[in-house]
Computed example of a mutant assay.
Amino acid sequence: MSSQAPRPRVAVIFGGRSSEHAISCISAGSVIGALDPEKYDVVPIGIATDGRWVLESADAGHLALGPGGEMPQVTGDAVVRLDPAAGLVVSQPGQVPAMLGEVDVVFPVMHGPWGQDGTLQGLLELAGVRYVGAGVLSSAVGTDKHFMKQLFVANGLPVVPWVVIRPGEWERDAPTVREAVASLGYPVFVKPARAGSSFGITRVEDESALDLAVEEAQRFDPKVLIEAAATGAREVEIGVLQALDGGEPETSEIAEITVAEAHAFYDFEAKYLEQSYRIPAELPADVAATVRELAARAFMALDVEGLARIDFFVMPDGGVVLNEVETMPGFTATSMFPLLWQASGLSYPDLVDRLVQLALDRGTGLR
């Protein structure tokens, strides 16, 4: 009698200590729902806001955005740890720890610090567990917008001018920082250097509003990035996937962000609640070709593996300027990255499956 091969065990890890905890939960709910239970053994693991790893319910419904906009969060008491020798170990309060067995691959649906920034990826490397997406270095650089820009410049990629405020610098010498910001020309955007989902971002029209904007950004990150506004630019986004054959990365259709006049920029409400975009973007053929070329170059410049969403400004003169790379973009079925690939002929379940297969095919360690 033949025995059926065991299904690969996929641990979907989500939540975390960053300001993007709820967004991570929503993304993970969609990923869990898309993984074929006949093909994969799915283990949902949530990281609570206090850092505890807990075994979550396989029913992804509780991870969805509530009808009134209520944000989900990780709850539970069954503490999980990843043991390099035993795999997943679960400890229930007052009970002997139970072994869940080996993990074949982790899908880290994590956004922001303490998850997307290379910290979780480093832990998985130490444990010898394969995982979806970018490695330690590219995850870290992709999360820190300051170092990301420096790497882009080193690779000849166009970016908007910026000023960085390092921790403590604003308190020590605010006048020098104000002078540097003034050299950019107002308006500017003030943002946390290592946060996402548009948290802590302020559009500043003149110097009088700079202090409050810096304070707002510092609520999320002691390191602040200030960028010159790309005045009159169109915002476009594109998805990039690692090629199955190891060749040039593949690029998706291009989307244009269409922000209503009620929003000063593409903020949280516009991004997650209104979903203002157009796919495909109506761009001249040469501009679209430039976006695709620069997206592939940015993907390779950061040594990204698996996936990335890459954001650009198309300037009034038709020039293309790189904004940022998201190494683990929002992953709900209605998030931009899956929508871009759906418009390119790759369905959401097939996209999730492809990313898991890419991770299963690669090892950990130096590569």
Rank of each mutant, 00 (worst) to 15 (best):
A5D: 06
P8Q: 02
A11I: 15
V12W: 01
I13W: 00
F14A: 05
G15W: 01
G16F: 02
H21A: 02
I23K: 00
C25D: 09
I26D: 03
A28E: 02
V31Q: 07
V31M: 09
P37A: 15
E38K: 14
D41I: 13
V42G: 05
V43L: 06
V43P: 07
I45N: 02
I45W: 04
T49N: 03
G66C: 04
G68P: 03
E70N: 11
Q73F: 15
V79W: 06
A85K: 13
L88F: 11
S91A: 07
S91Y: 08
S91H: 03
Q92D: 15
Q92M: 11
V96W: 09
P97C: 10
M99G: 13
L100F: 08
E102H: 14
V106W: 00
Q116W: 04
Q121N: 05
G122R: 13
A127T: 14
G128N: 13
R130S: 14
G133L: 07
G135F: 15
L137E: 11
S138K: 15
V141R: 14
H146A: 07
H146S: 01
H146G: 00
F147H: 06
M148F: 01
K149V: 02
Q150E: 06
L157K: 15
V164W: 12
I165E: 01
E179W: 09
V181C: 02
Y186W: 09
F189L: 12
G196M: 03
S197I: 00
S197N: 03
F199D: 00
I201V: 02
T202F: 11
E207K: 11
E207S: 03
L212K: 14
A213C: 00
E215F: 03
L225C: 04
I226H: 01
I226N: 00
G232L: 09
A233L: 04
E237V: 10
L241I: 09
Q242W: 06
G246R: 14
P249L: 06
E256C: 13
A260F: 15
H263I: 06
A264T: 15
F265T: 08
Y272H: 12
I279M: 11
P284M: 11
A296D: 10
F299C: 07
M300H: 10
A301L: 10
A308F: 10
R309T: 05
V320L: 12
G330W: 00
F331W: 01
S335I: 13
S335D: 12
S335M: 04
F337S: 03
W341H: 15
L346T: 10
S347D: 03
L351V: 15
L351A: 09
L358G: 12
L360R: 00
D361L: 15
T364W: 08
L366I: 14
